[in-house]
């Protein structure tokens, strides 16, 4: 019970420390306006990170996230431009995300291909598909998108939650329910914790694998929709290398890349840590974007080394018991 929340507590502590330190230099960070923007601007990363958290907990990885985000945007823009009903388009792209994810899950399990390689082909394929659809940025003009972009829920202190942030919070709640209150959720943890044992315990491996990647594909597609609506455009390079941010957010949120351990809610805090780092760096005009990458890399390193240490102390404690 306690041990399970340890990595998450570490994440929250890092987040709080960053938040307070940033706020001391730039008091505006404490305002609910900035906070609302943090959530709004990073909603899509967090959504993608939630999806990939399931995959990582199961012991896999999904590299196709960024390309899926790009493809969903381009597809939406083109179909809406062609006069399709935006709601229908939305449903279509989400179903596509789900099905493509399921396809990846299927070839991973059926053809026994490493997740890394299978989803790498997805990265290429979907990005290539973006360019097939359109080489340029296409604006998305639709009353539905304008309506969505004008959703605001006021926060105390003058800030507000955007539609994107609300969708993110809903997707998070859904993910928590799936992870912790369904048999499928427990199976994901079991699969990543000890695969051979999970098989012996009678777990449906193929179905679970397909569902995990389908879920991740679906979450990536939702992230793509939010991104496209935020920017009101479909751009074939959108979301490039975003899979790295999503994986980083998930790991910073306390998910172990070796599988079996992690909490979906960690993706929120991991994503917010990344968001805070970039906000602080942007507030400090003299620092540039390079710091974002370096700080992310450093935090990743620190978390991975700490995780290794936790794992080794964990197993030696069990032996010495």
């Amino acid at each position: 019970m306690r041990d399970r929340y340890l990595p998450l507590l570490a994440t929250i502590a890092v987040f709080a420390a960053l938040y307070i330190a940033g706020g001391m230099f730039y008091p505006r960070i404490f305002s609910s306006l900035v906070f609302g923007h943090l959530l709004a601007d990073n909603a899509f990363i967090i959504i993608a990170a939630i999806g990939v958290t399931f995959v990582i907990i199961s012991g896999g990885i999904d590299l196709s996230i960024g390309s899926m985000i790009g493809f969903v945007g381009v597809a939406m823009a083109s179909l809406i431009q062609a006069g399709w009903d935006p709601v229908l388009v939305l449903v279509l792209v989400l179903v596509f995300g789900l099905l493509y994810g399921a396809f990846q899950g299927f070839i991973i399990d059926f053809c026994d291909i490493q997740p890394f390689i299978a989803t790498l082909s997805g990265l290429f394929l979907l990005r290539g598909a973006c360019f097939m659809v359109n080489l340029n940025s296409t604006p998305i003009r639709s009353p539905f998108v304008s309506w969505f972009n004008n959703i605001y829920v006021d926060l105390p202190g003058g800030g507000f939650l955007t539609g994107g942030a609300l969708v993110m919070l809903f997707m998070l709640a859904l993910a928590i329910v799936i992870a912790h209150y369904t048999r499928f959720g427990t199976n994901v943890y079991a699969m990543g914790g000890d695969r051979p044992s999970a098989i012996l315990m009678g777990m449906p491996m193929r179905r679970t694998t397909v569902m995990i990647y389908a879920l991740a594909g679906f979450y990536s597609a939702v992230a793509g929709v939010i991104y496209a609506m935020n920017t009101s455009s479909g751009y074939p390079l959108a979301g490039n290398t975003l899979e790295l941010s999503a994986i980083a957010a998930s790991v910073l949120g306390g998910t172990m890349l070796t599988g079996g351990v992690g909490l979906v809610v960690g993706a929120l805090f991991g994503g917010m840590i990344l968001a805070l780092i970039s906000t602080i760096i942007i507030f400090n005009g003299s620092l540039n974007g390079a710091w974002i990458m370096i700080a992310t890399g450093f935090l990743l390193f620190a978390f991975i080394v700490i995780q290794r240490w936790i794992v080794s102390s964990f197993s030696s404690a069990a032996k010495a018991d």
Partner: peptide, 23 residues
């Protein structure tokens, strides 16, 4: 030395390297 899985270990430099270049 630290026994970190190769995919994860090299991911760190993959994320940070381009930032170091910019620096």
């Amino acid at each position: 030395v630290l026994d970190i899985q190769p995919i994860i270990a090299t991911l760190i430099l993959m994320v940070a390297g381009r930032g170091i270049g910019l620096m």
